[in-house]
Computed example of a mutant assay.
Amino acid sequence: MPEEHQMVNEVLQTSKALVRHIKATTLQHMLPRKVKQEVDTRWNTVIDMLDSLLSVYDEIQVLLGERKEDEMLPEPREFLEQLVELLRPVKQATAELSASKFPTMHLVLPWRKKLEGFYMAAANDDEAPAISALRKMMLRYLREKFVIVDIHQIAAFLNPRMRTLKMLTEAEKRAVHARVKALLPVMGSGLSSLHSKKPTTSRASTFADFEDDLVPDQEDDEIGLYLKTSVPPSSADDDERWILEFWKNKETELPRMSKLAKQIFAVPATSTACERTFSLAGFVIDDRRNSLKPEKVDDLLFLKSYYANASAGVTEDFPEFSKKFNKVFRSGAEWIRMVENIYGSEWSE
């Protein structure tokens, strides 16, 4: 391991040991805020741990000094602060891309470009050599592992506020438009009512081969209309699902692109949502309920998902939720039995 990387590893190991020590002694009760432990299976817990230590760093320093345990404190403090600032964009990106109550696929491309720009930026004069080396390593891994494919670019294009694709070259923009145009024909009927049709006559024109086609290219027509659409700028008050509302309102004007957007935005950017469902299944199927039929497990998991999404208003944009709900719960008595399976019989008392 290079010397620069060894320093980062030593700081992390010292921080982990300090958190374990604080939690195993009475020191935690003497601190104004709790320190957090890093968990191997949880994303972003490294930066959460370092952040929690920095928030009470002065208090920890005093307590360790009184106990003659100064060697347990990760130093220097400036190094920890630089390390946290280097990791913070990754935490923000993974948090947004792992969301499950609003679309995330359109965020992949801009976050890839944002992270690349952040790690390509020149280091500050006071940045530690180990942090600069880690910055270069993270940039290399970002380019190797964070691969952009067609669906990411198409999703970014279907984000009305990024439809000009400023982060791409002109050649890449044209390629995205071509891929969208190729997908639109399979999205169903388009704007036939808005198009002029060829005049029909009882006899074919002698020069039909030379006449212009009066029917515009429907795919180009929708893409052109979309590019000219007026979209209000983003604001802090925006609902996270505004993009679904936009395409819902465009179902008549842009029918094919609206269907394409619905299909694209139904795909999560990461597997986190699936992993959460697997974890939930582990709570549903336990030692006392190991004979549940697969269909019943599916219904229970759906119930949890339905109410989680209903509280966020997602079910209003996706009527399929309600269709499934009506299919699962055929009567009030069955609905109560389902809820009791999750929350216990005291729920209905």
Rank of each mutant, 00 (worst) to 15 (best):
M1K: 09
M7G: 00
M7I: 10
M7T: 07
E10L: 09
V11W: 03
S15Y: 02
H21Y: 08
L27E: 02
M30A: 09
R33G: 03
R33Y: 15
K36Q: 10
K36P: 01
K36V: 06
Q37D: 03
Q37C: 03
D40P: 08
D40F: 01
T41G: 06
R42N: 04
W43Q: 05
W43P: 02
W43E: 01
T45N: 10
L50T: 10
S55D: 15
I60N: 03
I60G: 04
E66I: 01
E69I: 02
D70G: 02
L73I: 07
P74S: 04
P74E: 04
E75V: 08
L80Y: 02
E85Y: 03
R88M: 02
P89Y: 00
Q92G: 05
A93F: 01
L97P: 04
H106G: 04
L107C: 06
E116N: 08
G117R: 09
G117H: 05
A130F: 01
A133I: 07
L134V: 03
M137W: 00
M138N: 02
R140I: 01
L142E: 01
R143H: 02
P160F: 07
R161D: 05
M162C: 08
L165Y: 03
A171M: 08
K173C: 14
V180S: 12
A182C: 11
L184D: 03
G190H: 11
K197F: 03
R203V: 15
S205L: 12
T206S: 10
T206N: 07
A208I: 14
D213A: 09
D220F: 06
D221Y: 15
I223R: 10
G224S: 14
P232I: 05
A236C: 04
D239L: 07
W242H: 08
I243N: 10
F246W: 11
K248G: 05
K259A: 14
L260R: 14
Q263G: 12
P268H: 01
A269W: 01
A269N: 05
S271D: 03
S271F: 02
C274N: 07
E275Y: 03
A281P: 00
V284Q: 11
D286Y: 05
D287P: 00
N290F: 11
K293S: 14
E295L: 15
Y307K: 11
Y307C: 12
A308L: 15
A308I: 14
E316K: 12
D317A: 15
F318N: 15
P319T: 07
P319M: 13
F321H: 11
I336W: 02
R337E: 14
M338L: 13
N341W: 05
I342Q: 12
E346H: 07
E349L: 10
